[in-house]
Design a protein around this nucleic acid. Sequence first.
RNA 1: GGAGCAGGUCAAAUGAUCGCCGGCACCGCCUCGAACGGUGCGGGAGGAAAGUCCGGGCUCCCAAGGGCAGGAUGCUGGGUAACACCCAGUCUCGGCGACGAGCAGGAAAGUGCCACAGAGAGCAGACCGCCCUGCCAUUGGCAGGGUAAGGGUGAAAGGGUGAGGUAAGAGCUCACCAGUCCCGGUGGUGACAUCGGGAGCUAGGCAAACCCCAUCCGGAGCAAGACCGAAUAGGAGAGCGUUUGAGGGCGGCCCGUCCGAGCUCUCGGGUUGGUUGCUUGAUUCUGCCGGCAACGGCAGAACUAGAGGAAUGAUCAUUGCCCCUUCCAUUCCCGGGGAACGGGAAAGGGGUCACAGAACCCGGCUUAAGACCUGCUCCAAAC
RNA 2: UGGGGGAUCGUCCAGCGGCAGGACUGCAGACUCUGGAUCUGCCUACCUAGGUUCGAAUCCUAGUCCCCCAG
Length: 129
Amino acid sequence: MMGGTASPHERQRSFPFPKTHRLRKPGEFARVKAEGRRRRTTHFTVNYRINGLAHHRLGLVVQKKFWNAAQRNRIKRCLRESFRLNRHLIPLPGKDIVVVARPGAEKLSCQDTGKELLAALTKQDGPSA
RNA sequence: GGAGCAGGUCAAAUGAUCGCCGGCACCGCCUCGAACGGUGCGGGAGGAAAGUCCGGGCUCCCAAGGGCAGGAUGCUGGGUAACACCCAGUCUCGGCGACGAGCAGGAAAGUGCCACAGAGAGCAGACCGCCCUGCCAUUGGCAGGGUAAGGGUGAAAGGGUGAGGUAAGAGCUCACCAGUCCCGGUGGUGACAUCGGGAGCUAGGCAAACCCCAUCCGGAGCAAGACCGAAUAGGAGAGCGUUUGAGGGCGGCCCGUCCGAGCUCUCGGGUUGGUUGCUUGAUUCUGCCGGCAACGGCAGAACUAGAGGAAUGAUCAUUGCCCCUUCCAUUCCCGGGGAACGGGAAAGGGGUCACAGAACCCGGCUUAAGACCUGCUCCAAAC
RNA sequence: UGGGGGAUCGUCCAGCGGCAGGACUGCAGACUCUGGAUCUGCCUACCUAGGUUCGAAUCCUAGUCCCCCAG
């Protein structure tokens, strides 16, 4: 539904997602978990923390316990794609965001994933600010 | 048509837009290079990538020596770098059949086990029965002995049938059959098959029990290993030792051999980065030749993922395929004389398929799970 | 990714080819005015599927799940 209603101007924009916009070290994950805030949706747990940079960074946690390798890859791709397309809609300041998938997430389509994620990330700024 | 057996192929396709990973070329930045940013070109998961069950390559352990221990394999011949794999056969078993399965050496080398039941379960064995003798006695009982034909037990009771024989019986004797061993012939490289002769009359099962025999195996694993850099410290305490040798290579042990001045434990502290190994290889495809086949040889062509919190995706459109809807109403085709009805197509909606994601690389095995094609078998029907 | 270990009543363990046992728990009964403690009895299990064997928790093969170690 989001792709269908998107304007031609928005469609033609590029949404790059380079390596610098990802969390890659164990320490970074640990810091977000320790110092950040947490918000829960039906299929994900979202931890976030202001990082002092001009952009947001994304980290994904998909446990081996609930899915096999193919399902884990699909969930991570959906989450990454949702973040890439909706990154400009998440309000600044720049944050480190860690998304933890919960059981049931493998049944979600990528469009629904994006909706759920964006709702969680825009809503959280209201009460806190 | 139904049920089944064997083999093979595929793993939706095309285009557009936005992204990801690495390669090459160019440009920018910069003293140069690296890094970073940008542009262009051409790549980017599997048949099982999986489980990690075997076998190799590769790397390090100086070299990988001898013996013991340990492990693996186990019909025959071949293939291979190697294998527990594959191919072709033999034997046994299963199936009406196509066909499939088999850890398929040795039980007369030795040891062990065979619960319960049963008289007896391993140089067999008398509970009932049968027979003989003696004693008491008149249908019978007791004692001693003989007997494996019958009953009964058991998963299994030491060949089968018939005749002779006997007190009753017994391979005790004989004939036939089955099986064992020995010798010889024929076919086959061989497992083995088949034929003839002889011996002797029984020799149970379990080796996925210990074991014996034959063959093979050094250990660890890319988190192997190599290089660069950073940080802390060149700490404190205890023990052993310096050529009469601690400790190590050595991995379970011994022999042998080599290195050899430090080694081990505790406390305290630091780093927990980058490059490389990393993809051209027992590689793939095509053709010819050898071979029943697995496979091998020769020639030509091709380059086909290299990530690292971990790359292949998302959206849209079209086609193909599949599923659902059609209560009322609409169109076409087929079956039907027509109607009812049934089937198919159009139309509309949805899905993009099942199993599943490379982590040093190959060869297998096993497990997971779709679709299609070819050949064959059995049954049913029709001709 | 590689290397190793395990699975037995509700829980923790034993069992090495022939009846599956112990402790705690649970239930019932006895004792007691009642409860606790004690005593007696009962309930309940071999991870799954094939194979070897007369017979498998045990031996062999394949699978499932869980745990540990290595940067």
